[in-house]
Design a protein around this nucleic acid. Structure first.
Lengths: 230, 230
DNA sequence: CGTGCTTTTGAATAGTATCAAGGCCGGTGG
DNA sequence: CCACCGGCCTTGATACTATTCAAAAGCACG
C-alpha cells in the first residue's frame, strides 16, 4: 500500500489521496535480487517503474555486446519512463543491490498525469534534474582524464547509494562495473584505485572500496565547477 | 502573438486557447543574431525559453574556460527549463544561427503548468526524450573513436538544423565548434573530415561541410544500434 | 597588401587500451 | 581436509590512439 509506504521521496506521493489509493491497488511491487534485469533493451513498454528501495543501473549496449552504464538510480527515482510514446525501451535496467521496485501500467499512469497536476509537474522536474545531471556528466566524461573519471564515478556511486549512514561510504561494485559507468576498462580502474589508496584518498577492504573523505575527493574535481546538488 | 505563430511544434500550443493568449501577452520574443548568449552559466533563473526559429547550443565550461557543448536545440525546443527550483543556471546557451526565441517568466509558466495538464505532460515528454537522447550520446561518446564521434557530431548537427529542405545538408559550424560537441579538438576534426572527403562520404565547399548522403554516414555507426528518431 | 583567424598537415609526445602473467579468494569436489 | 578451478584484481610491457606543438596555406577584413 502506497499510503503506508516508508519511501517519502516517491513521486506518487504528489497525487491526491484517492489517486494514491487507486495507483496502489493497480501497481505491483516485486522483490528483485542483486544483478537482476528489470527490463531489457528492446523490450516492449508497458509502464513505468518507481524504485522503493535499492540501487539500479541503466545500461545501453552496442552490437558487440559491450555495455555502457548511462545512469544510476536509487529510491525515489523513476525508470522506463523515457520510453513513453515509443514502442520499445532503447535502454535496459539492472539492479545493483537487492531492491523493491513498483510497477505502474501506462494507462493508469496516463490518467494520473491528467488528473494530478502536482504529480505531473514533479515528474517533469525529476526529468529536468536528470537531464541536467546527464549533461554535466557528458561534459565531465568528455573533458576528464582517467583518474578524474574514476573519482567522478566513485562519487556518483556514493551519491546514488542508499547507505549514507556513517561518515564512510562502502562501494561493492566490481572494477568492471565501475569502468562501464565512466567508459573505460577494469585495468585502468584498478590502477587509479591503487594510486588513490597510496595518496590516502580512499581505502580498500578486500575488493570493497571505502570512501572516508568525500570532500577531499570532490576537491580534486573542483576545476570542473560541478554543481553538486543531486 | 502565439495564436498566429508559424511554429507548429511549439509546446505552448498544448495549452487551452485562453492560456495561449495569456502567455502570449506576457512573453517577449527578442531577435538574436548568430553567436549571441541567451543566458550565461551562473546567471539567475527568471523563466524558460521557447525556440521559435534558429539553432542553439547549450554549453558548460570548466574553470580554465574550456567549453563543452552538451546539447543542441532547434525550433520547438525548450531552454533554461532544467534550472527550475535552482537559483542559477548550471549551463549556458548560445545561438548558432540567427534566431527568434520566446521568453516566459517563471510565475506565468508555473500557473500554466497547474491549469494545463496536456501542456505539462508534453513538456514532461520533451524532457523525457531529451534525457534519452543525452544518455545515448553518453554511450556513444564513451565507446566511439574519434572518426565515429565526428560522424555522430555531424549527424547531430544535421538533425537539429532547420534547413533540411533539399537532399543535401550544409554545416556552417567551425571545426572548433564541432570539436566541442564531441569532446575533442579542431585538428582531429579537420583530419577526420579530410579522410571522409577522400572516402566520398561528404564534400566541402570552402569551410562549409556538405552532407549529401546521410544514410551512408549513419550506416558507419550502425554497430552502436542508435535509435534514430530525434 | 598586410594582419589575424581558421584550416590543414606533419611530427613529437602523452595518455589510454590491450595483452599477458601472477596473485588472491571463494566455491566445488575428490 | 585439501587440491583444483574459475573469477576478479593487480601490475607490467607493449601497441595504439589521441593530444599537443608547430608550421604553412587559405580566407576574410580593413
Amino acid at each position: 500500500m502506497c499510503l503506508e509506504c516508508c519511501n517519502q521521496s516517491c513521486l506518487i506521493n504528489n497525487c491526491t489521496l484517492d489517486w494514491i489509493e487507486k495507483i496502489s491497488s493497480k501497481k505491483n511491487t516485486p522483490h528483485y535480487p542483486k544483478n537482476q534485469f528489470i527490463f531489457f533493451e528492446g523490450s516492449l513498454v508497458m509502464g513505468a517503474y518507481f524504485i522503493k528501495r535499492g540501487q539500479v543501473k541503466i545500461i545501453s549496449s552496442n552490437i558487440n555486446g559491450k555495455e555502457q552504464t548511462v545512469r544510476l538510480a536509487k529510491e525515489g527515482h523513476m525508470l522506463g519512463h523515457t520510453a513513453f510514446g515509443l514502442e520499445k525501451y532503447s535502454i535496459g535496467a539492472v539492479t545493483l543491490s537487492e531492491s523493491e521496485i513498483c510497477f505502474v501500467d501506462n494507462r493508469t499512469l496516463q490518467e494520473a498525469f491528467l488528473e494530478n497536476p502536482k504529480f505531473t509537474i514533479e515528474v517533469m522536474r525529476f526529468y529536468s534534474r536528470e537531464l541536467r545531471k546527464s549533461e554535466i556528466r557528458t561534459k565531465c566524461l568528455a573533458m576528464m582524464n582517467n583518474e578524474e573519471k574514476v573519482i567522478l564515478g566513485l562519487l556518483y556511486i556514493a551519491e546514488t547509494s542508499n547507505d549514507q549512514n556513517s561518515n564512510q561510504t562502502k562501494i561493492y561494485l566490481s572494477r568492471q562495473e565501475i569502468a562501464q559507468i565512466i567508459g573505460t576498462n577494469s585495468e585502468q580502474v584498478s590502477r587509479v584505485i591503487s594510486n588513490l589508496r597510496k595518496d590516502k584518498l580512499l581505502d580498500t577492504e578486500d575488493r570493497t572500496i571505502v570512501l572516508h573523505d568525500l570532500e577531499a575527493l570532490k576537491a580534486t574535481l573542483s576545476h570542473y565547477c560541478i554543481a553538486i546538488e543531486y
